[in-house]
Write a protein that binds this DNA or RNA. Structure first.
Lengths: 240, 240
DNA sequence: CGAGTGGTTGACTCCCTTCAAGATCAGTGG
DNA sequence: CCACTGATCTTGAAGGGAGTCAACCACTCG
């Protein structure tokens, strides 16, 4: 980890679909009041992590909230029996760092080299207290996270792994950063092991399931990280 | 459904563990400012539902937020393939009614006869806009929901149903309303089918799994809705 | 009493986990 | 340039857990 001694870039918070239209810029990010931006700049830092570097560990003091500026992050929960359940992947603009009783509930790890905006929780709380709009943004952000978590729940509870994978691919294809809607090509930011830990299954099953989907013409592996998808066939699979 | 033409009872919001101590009363509920209580009383109504009555349906306009005053509620999501995934159960003080783009994401159904405090979303938003403390409470509440959802995720992703059921029982045993920590007896508020839909499995498997747990001495069915639990043995099961 | 609901048990099938080995690829150093 | 190595991905085989369909039991209610 390195703290970068440069001016903080503009804080960009992902805002897909749930904010009033006049608060969203052309790239789908939230427009923050310039005063708020300035105040944030005073308390936040820009930090960089290398691929596979741990950002924070489960059950350690939850001092910061992070917002990816570039790169991608994996947040997972380790259970007593050794299982490692991935809770979510985070792309630029999606804040993470949920705590409970002052400690992190999960651990976070850089999927790629990445730049993160790091905001001290205490200072953010204080700032929210006299910036109602920021407070409101945090609330809307928390509800967005809740929706994502419920969506994840619906994905992992498909009994047949075939549906889990299909649903997962469709979910990924909604992210502009990784899906080319013209060529219908999805660029996976995570490896098979991450997909398995996200879907609650094993790498072997993921591999076999991708094979099955390809065999049935619902998608095609261009290489292990880039997949051509037939969105309508995949969607259709979920209806049966 | 019946709208009750009585004075609104005090709005009680469940506050387990994550609010400053001076804002929590002896029963574990959030202490709201009396002015806020009064303002809430002006926009909220008290409504009653009978057991098994639908409160709202998925994909219909999300006009209200509900807070159970008494009774219990089941919130579920219906999928295109006919599956009914239960997203959460709600007890007194736990607000529900998540929407997206103006419509409910899930449907809600009364598990028992219940009284709910019904708050129009628009009026609540307006109230929050000039009541920062209420806004803050909503944010903390949303994060509590997020934690619950992530906890649910961890429960349903246990591969062996035995662990799912054990974890589920432990989760239930945390709720004072349904668990007697002296006798170690849990009173289930839902039937087998609800447990199955919550855990992503079938009623038959639930029944068999309870049999297995009883056989191994981790719990005992006093009757179909009340279970004696050996908390330490159940916890221990999750570590293997 | 019969119908209906909720819960349990039995039998069979199959999907997925597990363990193992092979295949592919990127990086490294001779 | 090529052999070597380790990581990642894929494929194979065996075994078991859970879904499904069906029947049965207990209880409630009209």
């Amino acid at each position: 980890m390195k703290i970068l001694a440069v001016a903080l870039p503009k804080v960009r918070i992902c805002a897909v679909g749930h904010w009033p239209a006049d608060r969203i810029d052309k790239d789908g990010f939230l427009i923050l009041d310039s005063v708020v931006q300035k105040e944030l700049a005073e308390i936040a830092s820009l930090v960089s992590y290398e691929c596979k570097e741990q950002i924070f560990a489960q059950a350690t003091p939850a001092q910061y909230i992070y917002i990816p500026h570039s790169g991608a992050v994996r947040v997972a929960h380790q259970l007593a029996d050794g299982r490692n359940q991935i809770v979510a992947f985070y792309m630029p603009g999606e804040p993470f760092g949920l705590g409970e009783n002052g400690v992190y509930l999960n651990s976070a790890c850089a999927l790629t080299d990445c730049l993160l905006i790091r905001v001290p929780r205490a200072a953010l709380d204080a700032l929210c207290a006299h910036e109602p709009r920021l407070q409101q943004d945090c609330l809307v952000g928390a509800m967005a996270q809740l929706r994502l978590s419920q969506r994840h729940l619906l994905i992992v509870t498909h009994q047949r792994v075939l549906k889990r994978v299909a649903d997962f691919l469709l979910e990924c294809s909604r992210q502009q950063e990784v899906f080319d809607p013209v060529k219908n090509v999805l660029n996976l930011i995570m490896d098979r092991s991450d997909i398995a830990d996200y879907l609650g299954t094993s790498v072997e099953t993921i591999s076999r399931t991708l094979g099955k989907l390809e065999e049935d013409g619902l998608m095609k592996r261009l290489d292990s990280r880039s997949l051509w998808l037939d969105l309508s066939k995949l969607t259709n699979l979920l209806n049966n």
